[in-house]
Design a protein around this nucleic acid. Sequence first.
DNA 1: GTCTATACGAAGATAGAC
DNA 2: GTCTATCTTCGTATAGAC
Lengths: 194, 194
Amino acid sequence: MTEQNPLSRQQLVAGAADMIRRRGLNATSIREVAKHAQTPLGSTYHYFPGGKQQLATEAVRFAGDAVARMLDKELRAGPVEGLRAFLALWREIITSTDFQAGCPVLAVSIEEHAADERPAVLAAAAEVFNGWEAQLADSMRQHGADPQAAGQLATLVVAAAEGAVAMCRAQRSTRPLDQVSAQLEELTRTTVCN
Amino acid sequence: MTEQNPLSRQQLVAGAADMIRRRGLNATSIREVAKHAQTPLGSTYHYFPGGKQQLATEAVRFAGDAVARMLDKELRAGPVEGLRAFLALWREIITSTDFQAGCPVLAVSIEEHAADERPAVLAAAAEVFNGWEAQLADSMRQHGADPQAAGQLATLVVAAAEGAVAMCRAQRSTRPLDQVSAQLEELTRTTVCN
DNA sequence: GTCTATACGAAGATAGAC
DNA sequence: GTCTATCTTCGTATAGAC
């Protein structure tokens, strides 16, 4: 299993994640991803024999892992600090792109459709969401939160953050995310110090 | 300004809303919307000279108004009852379609992209989100909630519901929405009876 | 192994027949 | 006014030259 050209491969995955983040999955074409990574179109299918599905799946995991690594690091300072970092990351993503980028995991979750089958990219998205939730919930539990309450709140955090990011893009304002952040922080504080 | 064939027009808008709900904006083609409504392709451009943009914009408003009307009715029984109906609606949408449909307003919010311009469909999405928020917040205020807290909570409700619906689709489970619903209900109860 | 050239279908939009 | 046929562009994917 030779690893060909890992550099181009990684650029393709990162570029695909960025484009999905901005335009959604369907508007992200392999052609443009390859062009952006200065890679010939044919190479894309050499690196990713599974085509667009495979590239999109790896892009979702790539973006999910980046957030997970950040969470892992910031949660060491406590659940509230981790939460703040999580929310600040989304805020940075939407402001630094003038409200043009959001979350690629959410994007693939609402686009894929094939009545009978369950695409790999959707399964990857589910895993990413579950992973973030577990990281947040575990941290709260380790700081004295009720186990069940921690799980519920972690779900609320991820759902509210994802929804708020989308609303910010529609309204071209960080207000939704800022208002949601204040409430989630408050909730986390009271849940941890129970 | 003759109104041609209002029936076909409405079918096209409703069909477009349904398709956007399931597949997202980019994967929704005028061709298929017309086919589904048993209308010739050319007629679509007769009814909607603005093309896909116009059809999508009207579809977003159509879906948004349907929810707003339901909210208006259910909120008469109080903010908690209205919230329950709002959340139950989303639950019904995802379960009755086997997790294939979500919210068209969210879908257009994360897909459109054109660096310099601000598409009409995005503005419509922002208005719909703001409208739902205002309805929920006003109801809470009318039942004794602190005005600012009501506004913040209404934003959290919409954001969390939208995000949870997307997570439910990815995980093929209503768990995210159910967990979020329980917490939003509790929060609304305490905010109203302050 | 790497990339150019191309096959094939479907998209948005319109011209022009009825 | 209503719809068919078509223009043009772009999508995924691949065949085959280097």
